[in-house]
Design a protein around this nucleic acid. Structure first.
Lengths: 166, 166
DNA sequence: GCTTGACTCTGGAGTGACTACGGGGTGTGA
DNA sequence: TCACACCCCGTAGTCACTCCAGAGTCAAGC
């Protein structure tokens, strides 16, 4: 059976960019594969399984450092798994906190968007007025209920953005 | 009136780290301030207002590039504000998409966590079993309803993590 | 006058998880 | 022989900060 794959095939099989695969290798998440005579990486099914595991964890937003720890548990099933519990708990807590602030965010933006329906001049734009007023600390529709970011809410002095995942 | 602030005072007034202020200056979001004879930055109330505006936008998870555009609208109120609408709409769409996937994520993790209650050995850990099975593409409790990351959901081949904001 | 400590300056590097690029080598079908 | 797709490697860029080293400034206390 020809279970040996080159990097492009592995990537296609797992739905992962080849640059990402090389990145995982470089950072020690994927073991160095064998090489064909021409120097091409030669992967087997074990690599595919491991890569799929990593991507599943990443889909769960588990940081690579934690994925690494989980992989160690997979490799050493005799270890105590209390750490796994704690790891997942911590991840769940992170996600829930983030979720809460995202929901607040959504309410704020939805409220903001309602301010400006028709095309006109920026000087009259309700959105812009609202943003400026909010920055001044005046009462604004989107800060009705002590939302994160109002000035120093419990969540973060440090908001964070990702570029749109599309 | 002594409305002139040094960077530390501005930071304290706006609740922003001074490194962040310098970063905003370097990237052109905040104009270069005047300097005292000793070379220290000297800020006025306009800087504080602008900084507060930026932070409010960032609390709404608006990327700095978009904040820059909003600031241009603030500076030129005679411009057409249709772009503001679109900008906020796009931001709202981003946030809603992200929210949806976060909710799915939360369900997945919560379901995962339920698999392993008592401390034992990793080889028997339900969480680990579930993760491995899911990576294999087998039916798993957390993928009941076509969630992102299952293999190539509409959302992203590219999950993304932030370190916990605490 | 000297020290201490808090504050400021600059430039540069590090973070996480990729993503992109440049310049080359390899393999295959026409 | 050629085009073209694939692969190699190393490096740099992305975003929004965050941290650091090494140096200068300034007021208060001794």
């Amino acid at each position: 059976m020809e279970t040996v794959m080159r990097i492009g095939e592995l990537g296609a099989a797992a739905g992962v960019d080849i640059e990402t695969i090389r990145y995982y290798e470089k950072t020690g998440l994927l073991p160095d594969p064998a090489r064909s005579t021409n120097g091409y990486r030669a992967y087997g099914p074990a690599h595919l399984e491991r890569l799929a595991f990593i991507r599943h964890c990443r889909a769960l937003d588990i940081p690579l450092a934690d994925v690494k720890r989980l992989l160690e548990f997979v490799a050493c099933p005799e270890n105590d798994c209390g750490d796994i519990d704690r790891l997942i708990d911590a991840q769940l807590a992170r996600v829930r906190a983030r979720l809460k602030s995202m929901q607040a965010l959504e309410r704020q933006l939805a409220s903001l968007r309602g301010r400006c329906g028709v095309a006109h001049v920026a000087g009259d734009c309700g959105i812009l007025h609202e943003l400026v007023a909010a920055a001044r600390g005046e009462a604004c529709a989107c800060h009705i209920e002590g939302l994160p970011g109002s000035k120093k809410a419990e969540m973060s002095t440090r908001p964070s953005v990702r570029r749109s995942g599309a």
